[in-house]
Computed example of a mutant assay.
Amino acid sequence: MNKDTGGPAFPVSYDHDTFQPSRVDEAKRLMSGMDLRDYFATKALQGLLSWAGDDSSGSYHSNSDPAHTASMAYEYADAMLAARVKP
């Protein structure tokens, strides 16, 4: 599954004098990092994990299942990415 990742979460401008890479793959490594989708998911995960999950409000969320909670974090991240492109 190929998802739009939103690009880098913390982009840096390329300055050859600062990075001074000897190879293209080294330049890519120096400029790589977390993409925006992962960053959004980590923020959503923080919120999901901060809630005890035993609320009587009728919400379907329970953070007792890590795989489900992680999946939900990426659902929120994907929704945030989609919201960025809407007019």
Rank of each mutant, 00 (worst) to 15 (best):
H16V: 07
T18Y: 09
T42D: 02
L45T: 09
F19H: 14
A41T: 01
M34D: 01
Y74S: 06
A44Y: 03
R84I: 03
T69M: 08
D4K: 15
P21L: 06
F19C: 12
H68K: 14
M31D: 00
S64W: 10
S62F: 00
G58Q: 05
M72W: 06
S71T: 15
S13W: 08
A67C: 11
L48I: 04
D35M: 01
Q20N: 13
S50V: 06
L48W: 01
T18S: 06
K3H: 07
A82E: 14
A9N: 02
T69L: 04
E26Y: 04
G6Y: 03
Y39F: 12
G7V: 09
A41R: 01
V85T: 08
S59C: 15
G7P: 05
D65Y: 08
F10H: 06
V12W: 11
W51A: 11
D4F: 15
L36W: 07
K86E: 10
V24C: 05
M31C: 14
E26V: 07
A9V: 01
S56T: 15
S59N: 15
E26F: 02
L36F: 09
G47N: 12
N63R: 13
L45W: 05
D54E: 14
S57D: 14
L36Q: 07
A79R: 09
D25V: 12
D15F: 07
P66H: 05
R23T: 15
T42Q: 08
S62P: 01
M31V: 05
S57Y: 05
Y39M: 06
S64M: 10
A27Q: 02
L81I: 11
D15N: 11
Y14A: 08
F19Q: 15
A70K: 10
L81E: 03
S57F: 02
P11K: 09
S59H: 10
D15C: 03
P87A: 15
G33W: 00
E26N: 08
D15K: 03
D55H: 05
T18F: 03
D38T: 09
D65C: 11
L48V: 03
A82K: 09
D15E: 00
M31W: 00
G7H: 09
A73V: 02
A70P: 05
N2I: 13
S59F: 10
A52T: 06
D25N: 14
H68L: 12
P11Q: 08
L30G: 02
D54C: 04
K86D: 05
A41L: 10
R84L: 06
M72F: 03
Y60L: 12
L48R: 03
P11W: 14
P66G: 01
M72N: 04
K86I: 06
G53S: 13
F19K: 13
P66R: 11
A82Y: 10
F19V: 15
D25L: 13
A83L: 06
A82M: 10
S32K: 08
A82T: 06
E26G: 08
N63C: 14
S56A: 13
D4H: 14
K28G: 03
